Computed example of a mutant assay.
Amino acid sequence: MQGVAFAPGGTTLATSSGFTHTIRVWDAATGALRATFDRETGWGPTVRLPIAFSPDGTALAYGRGDATVALAGL
């Protein structure tokens, strides 16, 4: 499963790939890559990597294959 989430305000975009176990954070206006997360994204029996921003846009939460949720500060 692939995931896409916009931060509040619409200036930051996060994309995820369950197949590559990678999350990328982008500047929505310029397309510039701001950050990449590839650790602790998990290896479960299904390839899912759901993502969501916190209400203030300062953190990114993502689901892992082992049914836990991780939180990353931006």
Score class of each variant (00 low, 15 high):
residue 31 G to W: 04
residue 10 G to T: 09
residue 57 G to Y: 09
residue 18 G to W: 00
residue 10 G to C: 03
residue 68 T to H: 14
residue 51 I to Y: 08
residue 71 L to R: 09
residue 27 D to K: 08
residue 48 R to Q: 13
residue 3 G to M: 01
residue 12 T to C: 05
residue 3 G to L: 01
residue 62 Y to S: 06
residue 28 A to T: 05
residue 23 I to Q: 00
residue 74 L to F: 14
residue 11 T to W: 01
residue 36 T to P: 02
residue 43 W to H: 15
residue 14 A to W: 00
residue 33 L to D: 01
residue 64 R to D: 11
residue 40 E to V: 09
residue 29 A to S: 11
residue 15 T to N: 02
residue 20 T to D: 15
residue 27 D to T: 04
residue 66 D to R: 09
residue 47 V to M: 13
residue 68 T to N: 12
residue 52 A to K: 04
residue 18 G to M: 04
residue 27 D to S: 12
residue 18 G to P: 04
residue 23 I to H: 01
residue 45 P to H: 15
residue 52 A to Q: 11
residue 35 A to G: 02
residue 3 G to Q: 00
residue 56 D to K: 11
residue 42 G to E: 10
residue 29 A to K: 12
residue 16 S to D: 02
residue 30 T to Y: 01
residue 56 D to A: 09
residue 42 G to W: 13
residue 1 M to D: 10
residue 55 P to H: 13
residue 64 R to Q: 13
residue 66 D to F: 10
residue 61 A to S: 05
residue 37 F to I: 15
residue 13 L to P: 04
residue 71 L to N: 07
residue 44 G to V: 05
residue 17 S to N: 10
residue 2 Q to I: 10
residue 62 Y to G: 00
residue 43 W to G: 10
residue 21 H to L: 09
residue 5 A to F: 01
residue 39 R to M: 05
residue 48 R to W: 07
residue 47 V to S: 13
residue 37 F to A: 01
residue 40 E to K: 15
residue 65 G to M: 08
residue 20 T to P: 02
residue 24 R to H: 06
residue 23 I to G: 00
residue 7 A to C: 07
residue 32 A to H: 09
residue 53 F to A: 03
residue 61 A to R: 06
residue 9 G to N: 08
residue 66 D to W: 13
residue 58 T to K: 15
residue 3 G to R: 02
residue 43 W to C: 12
residue 52 A to V: 14
residue 34 R to D: 00
residue 4 V to R: 05
residue 22 T to S: 10
residue 57 G to E: 11
residue 3 G to C: 07
residue 50 P to C: 08
residue 63 G to Q: 00
residue 47 V to L: 14
residue 23 I to L: 07
residue 28 A to M: 02
residue 4 V to L: 15
residue 66 D to H: 11
residue 57 G to M: 11
residue 53 F to T: 04
residue 57 G to A: 13
residue 3 G to Y: 00
residue 12 T to M: 09
residue 58 T to C: 10
residue 14 A to G: 04
residue 15 T to G: 03
